[in-house]
Design a protein around this nucleic acid. Sequence first.
DNA 1: TAAGATGATTGTCC
DNA 2: GGACAATCATCTTA
Length: 418
Amino acid sequence: AGHSVQGGMALPPPPHGHEGADGDGRKQDIGDILHQIMTITDQSLDEAQAKKHALNCHRMKPALFSVLCEIKEKTGLSIRGAQEEDPPDPQLMRLDNMLLAEGVSGPEKGGGSAAAAAAAAASGGSSDNSIEHSDYRAKLTQIRQIYHTELEKYEQACNEFTTHVMNLLREQSRTRPISPKEIERMVGIIHRKFSSIQMQLKQSTCEAVMILRSRFLDARRKRRNFSKQATEILNEYFYSHLSNPYPSEEAKEELAKKCSITVSQVSNWFGNKRIRYKKNIGKFQEEANLYAAKTAVTAAHAVAAAVQNNQTNSPTTPNSGSSGSFNLPNSGDMFMNMQSLNGDSYQGSQVGANVQSQVDTLRHVINQTGGYSDGLGGNSLYSPHNLNANGGWQDATTPSSVTSPTEGPGSVHSDTSN
DNA sequence: TAAGATGATTGTCC
DNA sequence: GGACAATCATCTTA
């Protein structure tokens, strides 16, 4: 009595104080309320809203609510709760680690710089590879941006949905027993669902990075011929050290620098060259002659310059006024390369000592190419005499190092002088 | 397009 | 670890 009757639903009268020990009556009350709850979904929305309101206002509601909560807590929820302590997904961890290593996730650090740098180093850092390098980085940055944009979208959607569900549950918690723990569990479920989507995103990103990486590394492996100039420099060294074509580490570095390739590429080149030369000396004869002639021409320039230098300079101050190098305007790059490759630049005081050997070289070359014989050599400039019976190079009388002190800093070290 | 040239890789030896 | 030898893969050229 006194309670409003809404939506045609008459609620039982509130108990006033101790309503005697009328247990049956109370049971009847609860039974009615539960019945109303059960049938509430079958009714129209307006009716339901009205009933909800009526139920919320019912005097028995708090007691009934707490009982239901207690029952729920004691049954399924507690069991499920214990099972939900799942360990971190190893696959997700793997993906996270990889994305971090590739520079896709985590702080911006020039994405994939390690791979790109390694590849650039292996390829000698030429301009072409710099382009590839920057191309790789640009593409990786693009992947990174897409990944972060998508990730942000997912996170935003996840947050929005979580908020929405939480609001819904809070709202529902007024009419049905929903404990905070249950809300928490629901949030966990939502996060897991979104995590699985995120994992797909991470997987796709990893695949994209892998594809990009493999393409980039393939490009690195792609063989490219050295530049003409580089080949000339290497050949020049090879034929001028034919008696012992084993450049020292220092010489290799110098050659690598000059040719814009790596030291290992220089090593490869000399390895290949030695074998191929040895296998087919006849085939390389022409090439050998060519480089000998080149060396001779540069030597001729050197001789001319040296003679002039000797004439113009005071004997006590040889090569004064210069850094000690020959300035040979017409000597060409090859000779300049020879100078530097042979270590120290020509010193004025040593020029005279070298003049004779250079003249010898020149004379020998002229004789050879002109078909004359001075009795010093055979028909070829580079005869297999450098190779021993086992097919290997004889121990050279001169060390392999171009900077070796025994070689003399100013010598135009060339087998043509033999 | 085939053949040769050439840079790189791999396995072995010292 | 460096050199050699064989081989692969790609580039160049006729």
